[in-house]
Nucleic acid binder design. Structure first.
Lengths: 254, 254
DNA sequence: GAGTGTGAACAAATTCACAGCC
DNA sequence: GGCTGTGAATTTGTTCACACTC
């Protein structure tokens, strides 16, 4: 299924900004909710509020896809759902394998958001022989030995890694060698992959650390450095915000 | 810039770029691994490779924290671990509550990365009375009714929401009312919070959709005889990284 | 009048490239 | 010679504001 190479459709400038791509799923979710409530049209203002962004950004984002709205009216919900789905490649079915069926892998297997969005859990794979054959979310777990065959038989191009950190790179290598070109990595480790393979990572601990950074800053702004004992709940006030600049101990070892 | 010792770097506190903050945990993880191997110093080049970023970016990031390296030598691993930990607020202990102990909540409760990074699971909360008292990851689940009391008694300022989408906003409101000012949201929904409360979200389905977008693009590009044969040892990955660029069908129904 | 679509202004983040120090 | 630290250049992303269409 090719397209003319060296010749662009030119309908709209291809090259949708990465930041926009990352927001399309957000819009899609909001639109799907509207669709289920049979709302026929929506303005950029309303949709932006539902998606948690501002309307200028939303209109700009949509402008990269094309002119799908009607001035003075807004956007047709169904039509926009279709356009965004198509742009994201969700009008086709993506078989996905999940490797590592521990607590997290099981949670992912049970996650409903998959099926409803064009993704299908094609297989669950785990290294523990005791898991083999046991159904999780209605799908029997298969052993890692068969990884390559499973990937090939199902034409899988997207893999999810939910193994312990120590196994992740090895699993990744095997997935890539078997033909997977997109990986969602939940293991807290950096994966090395060849060019042409996309990796996205989700790291719990990183998200918490970012929150802690901001939390610390809030705490440092209202009360001075009063740490140690107490562990004050410190229900924020957040009025004047922006203190001059919190000052931290500045201890310097060594 | 500024000073090196006896005087804290004046550039701190005030305006560390958000993008930099988001990478600090990555550096910290790489540094911790080096520390465990008793590596004394590391260059920006080496550390960058371990963290999966490029060295110029890493040096720039560190420059916002202060001048913690030594020209011609590199960075002292232990010292840097300490500085980044302090900057992120990880030298103190953050009690965290997890609300919604389904598959995902249980996975989070069992996640080891918590304790090792200054976070402590103070309580698990679920709305199902049948769960109450049952231990998950060694911690007894408590009922939602006691949410406010739990938050207050433990001085919790960080909450993790792992409930179904329908319950998330309500749980969020109660957490915030009880004093929580940072929320990590796993439910696929937009949370409304007052000013002063930080929300970060992790959405599985969104990550997959972004991968699908790139995957689709790759598929539509099969024509160019990209690089040579197999085995390309390229060492590089990046979340949200994108390959060269291709084109997509871009059909446009009238 | 209402609300999209978009150039132009602005801001944030990344990369370059090299001076400065060990 | 090796490596950090950082201004300057560049790229990417956001916001403004208004012409234009329905």
């Amino acid at each position: 299924m090719a397209t003319g190479r060296t010749h662009r459709p030119a309908t709209r400038s291809r090259g949708i900004p990465e930041a926009t791509v990352a927001r399309l799923p957000l819009y899609l979710r909001a639109l799907t909710a509207l669709s289920e409530r049979s709302v026929p049209t929506v303005s950029s203002e309303e949709l932006a509020a539902a998606a948690g962004v501002n309307s200028a950004k939303l209109r700009k984002d949509f402008s990269y896809l094309g002119s799908y709205g009607t001035r003075g009216v807004g956007y047709d919900v169904e039509y926009l759902v279709y356009q965004i789905s198509r742009e994201l490649g969700l009008t086709q079915d993506w078989p996905v394998v999940i490797v590592g069926i521990g607590n997290l892998g099981a949670a992912l297997a049970n996650y409903g958001g998959f099926a409803s969005r064009g993704f299908r859990v094609a297989a669950l794979i785990d290294a523990d022989p005791a898991m083999a054959g046991k159904p999780v979310a209605g799908i029997p777990v298969q052993h890692t030995d068969d990884l390559e065959k499973i990937i090939e038989d199902n034409g899988v191009s997207i893999g999810v890694i939910a193994t312990p950190a120590g196994a992740a790179q090895q699993v990744c290598d095997r997935l890539v060698a078997a033909g997977v070109t997109s990986i969602l990595n939940f293991a807290p480790t950096v994966l090395n992959v060849p060019d042409g393979v996309d990796v996205r990572k989700v790291d719990l601990s990183i998200e918490l650390q970012i929150l802690a950074f901001h939390e610390q800053r809030k705490a440092g702004e209202e009360a001075a450095a009063t740490e140690g004992t107490g562990a004050v709940p410190a229900v924020r006030d957040e009025s004047g915000d922006k203190g001059p600049d919190g000052d931290v101990p500045a201890v310097m070892p060594a």
